[in-house]
Design a protein around this nucleic acid. Structure first.
Lengths: 231, 231
DNA sequence: GCCGCTAAGTTATCGCCGGTAAGTTAGCGC
DNA sequence: GCGCTAACTTACCGGCGATAACTTAGCGGC
């Protein structure tokens, strides 16, 4: 009857919320060693917490809601990691790189959490809510503010920082996601590779701004072939 | 007893392989309208083909093997789309952009196929096999050959094309994967956005080659702020 | 003291899943 | 028409998400 982990004592009257936190923590732990969110089961979580499956549903409408709560938690952790990596740095471009590197490092260190947060299908019906959830997300706002600062510093062309933020985020996500999904590829020193990609994305964006958007690929090829050395 | 779809006639003696193709096709169809590979069931596939579930196991060891076969099929389609997009184009940089755009377009048009192929966890034990599977994959080799041609044309610094290919692929994957995972974000015209990202990645890589790898983020910021206009 | 009320759980069950063992049917060679 | 085997089916196992219905424990009121 009893599961591997000990049975949990019933929470005292006022504090049912305590179980909620335990459930989220246990789900995060189980997620860390699972292939995806389908691989962690309500039953497994319940067992880890020391409770029976239906008790989970007292705190979460369904499994998706539980996973969503974990994802929100993960994004907060990610933001904290980014902020910590940029503390004391002033120049916007350095902050941008620090953010990006911390982002990729977090993904590498918590691959399954990152996968669930950014690579699984979002419920389609939650469109407006999820849009706000990403754009209002702390990590995203901090990132976009830094892009804005880079514009002020003359690194990027002045304008709406949102599309630039999305583009740079794409680069960071690309390298992080591929390293997670195809870990056996010859990535070399992962953070160095990530750094190269991030820097190339930023430089490419900045140079594109200066070259103008109407250049064809052939024009770019000619221009690049003509550039032998830096300034 | 009878399912929605009609019962399939038993295949004639010599040709059991025909069912295999039908299974793959049906799985691809079901995958196209599912959240992930866990959401398509062996039972669903069997029903769509007009057969009972255990018959699937006559052709595939387990569900993973079936999904893997579908993924291989998808990668072949992807390669075909890339090749088709670059037919008649000669200049390597234009080919590179055409490949990248076709890649992202394929991902946008077949989001669930792309997700299963590139965003779900690979079986860990298959390391060497999967490494070859990606690196020897037709799309990847074609892409890397074009990177090599770009080096010969003086666009990128000459050297091993593999790391550059991985970096550019990361950029393409990043924008494709994010557009799929977060479709509600303000991407604007998706292919235009993808084009900007891809071009920025290529330019950034090329300019980075010329600037040298030892520049700090602050150096880059200074250099960029000093660059007012093109050549 | 004990009673109602409700928070905090449990037991039992449903239908679906991946997968397997064992049985059945149909067609070819002889 | 008989054996052989390819091409299936029926019946089943344990585990899953989810729900309905039941039980237990503690607090306020009298």
């Amino acid at each position: 009857m009893t599961s591997v982990s000990t049975r949990r004592k019933r929470a005292s009257r006022g504090s049912g919320e305590q179980l909620r936190e335990e459930i989220i923590a246990a789900t995060k732990d189980l997620l860390a060693e699972s292939a995806n969110s389908d691989a962690v089961s309500i039953r497994g979580v319940a067992d880890a917490v020391g409770v029976t499956p239906p008790s989970i549903y007292l705190h979460f409408a369904d499994k998706d809601a539980l996973i969503e709560a974990v994802v929100a938690d993960v994004f907060n952790e990610l933001d904290a990691a980014m902020l910590a990596a940029a503390v004391g740095i002033e120049r916007p471009m350095e902050v941008l790189c620090a953010y990006g590197l911390a982002y990729v490092q977090f993904a590498i260190e918590h691959p399954e959490h990152y996968r669930v947060a950014t690579m699984e299908r979002c419920p389609v019906e939650g469109q407006p809510g999820h849009l706000d959830m990403v754009l209002a997300d702390a990590a995203f706002t901090h990132f976009m503010a830094t892009v804005s600062a880079c514009m002020d510093a003359g690194v990027f062309a002045k304008g709406d920082p949102l599309p630039v933020t999305l583009e740079l985020w794409s680069a960071a996500h690309g390298v992080a996601a591929l390293m997670i999904a195809k870990p056996f590829l010859p990535w070399g020193e992962r953070l160095e590779t990530a750094n190269r990609v991030l820097r190339a994305a930023a430089i490419g964006r900045a140079v594109s701004d200066r070259l103008g958007g109407e250049m064809t690929a052939a024009d770019v090829e000619d221009w690049l072939a003509a550039q032998r050395i830096g300034p």
